[in-house]
Design a binder for these strands. Structure first.
Length: 779
DNA sequence: CAGTGAGCGAGCTTCCGCTTGACTT
């Protein structure tokens, strides 16, 4: 029989707040939105001013009934969802659905979860801001219109079950555009000239680089020639102090980036681990775009720094969120108790916590101070100079705790540390001068985290959607995360040593990539199609420009349905037009030529299940005339495949030969190329092709597989037939009731494990969370 | 993480933002 009911968005938050408010307050959570448009219908009434048709999702019904009951029994209901557009809408939906009355409903907001902040909020309630709510409705309705009108166009023109949307389609475009930039990239070569000089002591070496790059080989020869018999003199020594400041505290996006670079976590992994830290009360909320720190956090960070590092290392800093739309609904991501150096939890949780803690502390620490020394060496008779730069940390400051990582690390030239002591006009002895051919770098492919950074820069997507968006574009097979083989490239090294000029040719590997996002054929075709018909929605500034409209709505300067009407009147006719375009062929289809055997045309296109080659066309009249199909191989693209390559695909399945009286057949299946032999399937490694594999190679694969299968069974238990010890790709493991368990490294001889020991291993593993992977849906 | 193994003429599909679910017989 409480007097007051407070409703917040997150249950973890509810738990903490309840402690501050005492007996007269009950705090409950709405678990985000409690109402939304129907999931499988358009749900916007175009005839009646774009009226949204909201429903309570099935999994929220129980919760809503409970909230209703509690609200009825309370004298006063406090709607305490976040202070941003979505939060305001959540409060409004609660108000409507729970049937609340104005006289006993109050809207409150607080920016940090402390007793003071909450008590202050209770003292200063306000009403629901209907303009802000309407801005959210406009956002929601626009996204539904874009998504549910574009997707069906793709089903018709490209492939069933595809999707398009304001956020995901632009994310795909970024990746497609980048891949094209990479394809079109022409590296330019220049010569980078470095020299090693001996100081007068005859021992110390000074390494310096020429202050400009040479373009042509003839220039290099001329330059080296001119260096043969000249004096090199220390021309200038400049020392300059440099300061470096710490990075701001973490937001969702920067946390995702740093966790990827420093800990190797994927974007969704980071979010799952952070969620657990949040629920355990170790960190503040993990979905935020704010870099703001509460006074409490600033104070405790100061204490921790003063205690551990001393006054010299402390500096008060306040960060402000730059992005315009940011509402500062939450704080930055930080430890709840900064004094806690370590936490209990899995190794992953501890590492992420430590990262967050270090970043938070570092941002309240003093600048690092460095001294940068630049030494220039004059060449008699030339105006170019050799330059050596070195940086020495004179005061480490925040660097003692945290060093930010960058994506292009390792590509940068190594910087010198301390330079040897030299004096002006000192004459140096030339050891050698080396000119190395260097090439300009192609733009980098996106990683999950760098894509998030780019989306955030463009103001597209929100902290809660970065990870799901990246999942969606991979689920739709617009984009794959994968590796790319590098190619070999030759470069010249021309050197002057003693009085001899020598030229040698070396090779290096370039362009190799690991775990990067690359567009698929489907992604490219869909992107190009959308770019042709819907350039407005695909524009990188589309979100920014509609956000401006939503802002006007939020400020009460515009009626939300007018904003939608303006957009719809422009957008819908284009959808109609895109539908109406009669195409003989599928979007993205390409005719390669004529099959010499049948005289029929050969096409490549996006088929029902992905890229496919086709010989002949279906006949309208004669149903028996059927085209033939063959799936493209991994690495082949409908953009680049040739007629010959396409025709070869129709050689599969192909009889490779016989072995022990049974045939070996090569083909491509769901998981790539394989050999079928004696009712078994053996994968063909990617160095070989099913088109060219020889009987000898196939037999070798079959024998290897046979050997592996024999070694697969390590041990069985008669008393427990479901318990088995097996050899897998990653060594021995225990299989039990459809689940697999790792055998600890401390076990040297797995075959000696007893049933009891196996059980202990399993019960030990059960305690931890095991990420269950969903198998590909069949049928 | 731990083994899988097609098809291409009609059944269904889809958006973006909030938030964490977890059962009865």
């Amino acid at each position: 029989m409480q007097k007051n009911l407070v409703i917040v968005e997150s249950p973890a938050k509810a738990k903490t707040i309840e402690k501050f408010l005492g007996k007269n307050y009950k705090v409950m959570s709405s678990y985000g939105h409690i109402r939304d448009l129907k999931t499988n219908e358009f749900s916007i009434d175009l005839e009646h001013g774009y009226a949204p048709q909201y429903v309570i999702p099935a999994d929220k019904k129980k919760l809503v009934t409970e909230l209703k009951k509690e609200a009825k029994e309370s004298d006063q209901v406090w709607l305490a969802s976040d202070e941003d557009r979505e939060g305001e809408a959540i409060s409004w939906h609660l108000y409507e659905v729970l049937g609340l009355k104005p006289e006993n409903t109050k809207r409150i907001v607080f920016h940090e979860i402390t007793k003071n902040a909450i008590l202050h909020a209770i003292k200063t309630p306000r009403n629901i801001d209907i303009n802000l709510v309407n801005a959210q409705q406009a956002r929601r309705v626009l996204d539904r219109i874009v998504g549910f009108e574009l997707s069906p166009v793709l089903w018709r023109k490209v492939k069933p079950a595809l999707s398009a949307g304001r956020v995901q389609s632009v994310a795909v475009r970024l990746i497609v555009d980048r891949e094209r930039e990479i394809n079109d990239f022409v590296p330019e070569a220049t010569y980078r000239v470095t020299a090693n000089f001996l100081l007068p002591d005859g021992q110390t070496v000074l390494k310096a680089e020429l202050n400009h790059r040479l373009k042509k080989k003839e220039e290099v020869y001329a330059f080296l020639k001119s260096c043969e018999n000249v004096r090199f003199v220390i021309d200038d020594i400049v020392k300059k102090p440099v300061r470096k400041s710490p990075a701001p505290p973490f937001t969702t996006s920067t946390l995702q980036q740093e966790a990827a670079r420093k800990l190797g976590y994927s974007v969704s992994q980071t979010m799952m681990i952070a969620q657990r830290l949040y629920e355990s009360g170790f960190i503040t909320y993990m979905r935020t775009d704010s870099v703001n720190l509460s006074d409490l956090a600033l104070g405790t960070a100061k204490e921790a720094i003063l205690e551990t590092y001393g006054e010299r290392y402390y500096k008060f800093r306040q960060y402000h969120t730059k992005s315009k739309g940011a509402q500062e609904a939450h704080e930055a991501i930080r430890p709840t108790y900064i004094a806690h150096e370590k936490i209990e939890g899995s190794a992953q949780e501890r590492r992420l916590y430590e990262l967050i803690r270090r970043r938070t502390i570092a941002c309240q620490m003093a600048d690092a101070e460095l001294e940068r020394t630049t030494i220039s060496v004059a060449i008699d008779g030339r105006k170019e100079k050799f330059v050596a730069t070195g940086e020495v940390v004179t005061f480490d400051g925040f660097l003692q705790v945290y060093r930010e990582s960058y994506d292009d690390e390792g590509e940068k030239e190594q910087e010198n540390g301390l330079l040897p002591p030299v004096t002006k006009d000192e004459v140096l002895l030339r050891k050698d001068i080396v000119a190395t051919e260097r090439f300009t770098q192609r733009p980098p492919r996106y990683t999950e985290a760098s894509l998030v950074r780019r989306l955030e820069e463009l103001g597209i997507g929100r902290p809660s959607t970065y990870a799901p968006t990246i999942q969606t574009i991979q689920n739709r097979q617009y984009v794959v995360k994968g590796d790319k083989e590098g190619t070999e490239r030759a470069y010249d090294v021309i050197s002057l040593e003693e009085d001899v000029i020598k030229e040698i040719r070396k090779t290096e590997m370039v362009g190799a990539d690991r775990n990067k996002l690359m567009p698929t054929d489907i992604g490219i075709v869909v992107n190009d199609f959308l770019m042709e018909y819907f350039p407005g929605v695909m524009d990188y500034n589309f979100t920014a420009s509609v956000e401006k409209e939503f802002d006007s709505v939020a400020e009460g300067k515009m009626v939300w349905t007018d904003a939608i009407d303006k957009f719809y009147k422009m957008f819908h006719p284009i959808v109609e037009k895109a539908f109406a375009v009669r195409t003989e062929h599928k979007v993205g289809e390409r005719e390669l030529g004529i099959d010499p055997k049948s005289g029929e045309p050969v096409f490549v296109k996006i088929g029902r299940y992905g890229p496919v080659a086709q010989i002949g066309v279906a006949s309208q009249d004669d149903k028996s005339v059927k085209p033939r199909f063959a799936t493209l191989m991994k690495g082949q693209s409908i953009e680049t495949i040739t007629l010959e390559e396409a025709l070869r695909l129709f050689d599969l399945p192909r009889t490779v030969g016989e072995y022990n009286g049974k045939v070996m057949v090569a083909a491509i299946g769901r998981f790539g190329p394989f050999i079928r032999y004696d009712g078994k399937f053996i994968s063909i490694p990617k160095e070989m092709s099913p088109l060219t594999i020889t009987p000898g190679e196939a037999i070798k694969l079959i024998e290897e597989k046979r050997l592996k299968d024999e070694r697969r069974f390590v041990k069985k238990f008669d008393e427990e037939p479901e318990m088995e010890i097996l050899n897998g790709r990653f060594g021995p493991y225990i299989a039990y009731k459809g689940k697999n368990y790792r055998i600890p490294k401390t076990v040297v001889m797995p075959e000696k494990l007893t049933l009891e020991e196996c059980r202990t291993i399993i019960s030990g593993a059960e305690g931890k969370t095991d990420s269950k992977k969903k198998t590909v849906k069949k049928k």
